Computed example of a mutant assay.
Amino acid sequence: MTSTPTAALSEAGVSIWLDDLSRERITSGSLKDLIADRNVVGVTTNPSIFAAALANGESYAAQVQQLADTGAGVDKAVFEITTDDVIQACDVFAPVFESSGGVDGRVSIEVDPRLSRDTQGTVNEAKELFDKVGRSNVLIKIPATVEGLPAITAVLAEGISVNVTLIFSLQRYREVINAFMAGIEQARENGHDLSKIHSVASFFVSRVDSEIDKRLDAAGTDAAKALKGKAGLANARLAYQVYEESFASERWQVLAAAGANAQRPLWASTGVKDPSLPDTLYVTELVASGVVNTMPEKTLEATADHGVVSGDTITGTYAESAALLDELDAAGVDYNDVVEVLETEGLDKFVVSWGELLETVNAALETARKA
């Protein structure tokens, strides 16, 4: 018998990553405890996570003082502080990285969100982050914007592992997989060891429900309201179908034979935002072998406490999921508009968070200079 729900999730083939990082979590031993007690095998970060960590943490005071003493500007300070956290987290996860053959034990750091529409700027910063962290188990996060797609290809071609983030639509996901395969093909041409390159595609879940449910409420009919809380799962399950089909292709088989690793689907935005829905919904209902689920700590603890893991809850659901999207269309919900709005909002939120991060660090630098 499996002892805990998180252990059962792990045994079902789901890699549990924590969607949070702070220096306090590293230095207190909390991160190590989650590896031991909650089957956590990776970490994702984003501008919002770093903004919260810096705003609430005293653990950065010594480094901020040092940076202030050397005359560092705010952008330089943010770069040094965030990469330092990721370096330390990579070292904590090094044993997991080794034991999993490089599949897990991964820590993600995102390029400056202000570069999300700048292909070359994204490529340049991805390389800079990779070089600065200097750890094989880092993943560089690149948003799946139209401008981000060629950047994903270019960064992978350099042999750098990538976490593609902010994916909402099935069509964009197909484009992401194409960009990934193109990058692996170029990496092979560039002489890189394909077995060392890993990637995940972060497909967002709960935000889809939040936006669509708002529109269903506005429609006001009983038929529309009956569809609430179902779109996020249907969309993600159809994404897994895209994954299965794409990585069964002849194009991929050629790369796999050369030692390449498939780009794994990662379920992101898995914290339930509607209190009327089960708080483990986007975990227990998205179980399949070979996926990653990155969870905020609240969702992780809810799963550990009362999550019911009943094996694969994705394969075999494709017809039902496609029918659900058809019903949404019939109810007047424009899928293409939804995913476009979500991508724009997601990028805007990260830019706002980055601005808050810069303000927080700048204030701390000013205080330190006066000390």
Results as ranks from 00 to 15, higher is better:
250 E>M: 11
25 R>E: 04
107 V>T: 04
94 A>W: 11
311 G>T: 12
277 L>Y: 08
78 V>T: 07
122 T>I: 08
185 E>R: 13
67 L>T: 01
175 E>W: 08
361 V>W: 03
272 V>N: 04
293 N>C: 03
43 V>Y: 03
167 I>D: 01
21 L>V: 02
23 R>K: 12
129 L>N: 08
292 V>M: 05
346 G>S: 09
367 T>H: 13
332 G>A: 06
12 A>R: 06
42 G>P: 08
281 L>G: 02
115 L>T: 07
45 T>M: 10
68 A>S: 13
222 D>Q: 11
54 L>W: 08
250 E>K: 12
348 D>K: 15
72 A>F: 02
36 A>K: 14
53 A>V: 01
254 V>T: 14
214 K>H: 13
265 P>Y: 02
72 A>T: 00
367 T>P: 06
239 A>C: 11
187 A>P: 05
198 H>D: 08
361 V>Q: 09
124 N>E: 13
301 E>S: 13
227 L>F: 00
279 D>I: 05
167 I>F: 01
285 E>T: 12
225 K>S: 11
263 Q>C: 05
224 A>Q: 08
138 V>F: 07
247 F>E: 02
325 L>H: 09
350 F>Q: 12
246 S>R: 13
53 A>G: 03
207 R>T: 07
327 E>P: 10
23 R>W: 10
368 A>S: 09
61 A>L: 09
330 A>W: 01
59 S>W: 10
281 L>Q: 06
268 A>F: 05
121 G>N: 01
369 R>M: 10
369 R>C: 09
291 V>E: 01
327 E>V: 04
316 G>S: 07
96 V>I: 15
346 G>T: 01
236 A>C: 11
34 L>C: 10
97 F>H: 11
11 E>V: 05
233 L>G: 10
225 K>M: 13
137 N>A: 12
291 V>H: 04
26 I>L: 04
133 V>C: 04
245 E>Q: 15
231 A>S: 07
312 D>R: 11
215 R>H: 11
144 A>M: 05
210 S>T: 15
158 E>N: 14
191 G>P: 02
199 S>P: 04
148 G>P: 01
333 V>D: 01
11 E>K: 14
211 E>Q: 15
237 R>P: 05
187 A>G: 03
59 S>C: 11
209 D>G: 00
10 S>W: 06
161 S>D: 08
122 T>S: 12
89 A>P: 02
136 S>R: 15
67 L>H: 04
218 A>Q: 15
111 V>I: 14
43 V>K: 00
266 L>C: 09
282 Y>G: 06
361 V>K: 03
359 E>C: 03
36 A>Q: 13
15 S>Y: 02
189 E>L: 15
333 V>M: 04
57 G>N: 00
171 Q>E: 15
